[in-house]
């Protein structure tokens, strides 16, 4: 039986890696991918707690998080496409004027 601490350590490492990825990279798409990594790390923590408490509520919450992440990815990518059409680049340092 694997103690839940091991899974939580993996989840924390993934979360911090997502944060590092978000800060290091300067293009929108990889930053968005790092956000998805952070969401995944949170999902892993939820399922670990659902397993260790013996209830299924954690799995239902992960179900909703996955669904909302899908919706958010669709809209986020649409916005990235619009930004690319306007500024012809996806590097965050080229998008520095508030006026469209």
């Amino acid at each position: 039986m694997i103690p839940p601490t091991y899974y939580l350590v993996v989840s924390i490492i993934l979360f911090v890696l997502g944060i590092i990825g978000f800060f290091i990279k300067k293009d929108l798409i990889t930053q968005f991918l790092s956000v998805e990594v952070m969401l995944n790390a949170a999902n892993l923590a939820f399922i670990t707690f659902a397993h260790s408490a013996g209830s299924l509520d954690g799995q239902i919450i992960v179900f909703f998080v996955i669904t909302v992440a899908a919706a958010e990815a669709a809209i986020g990518l649409a916005i990235i496409l619009l930004v690319y059409r306007k500024h012809k680049s996806i590097k965050t340092e080229d998008i520095h004027l508030m006026k469209g």
């Binding site: 601490t5 397993h51 260790s52 408490a53 299924l56 799995q59």
Partner: peptide, 13 residues
């Protein structure tokens, strides 16, 4: 997490 060292095997999801 010190009080919750082991895990309860509930039903599979």
């Amino acid at each position: 997490l010190s009080p919750m060292a082991t895990s309860v095997s509930g039903q599979a999801g």
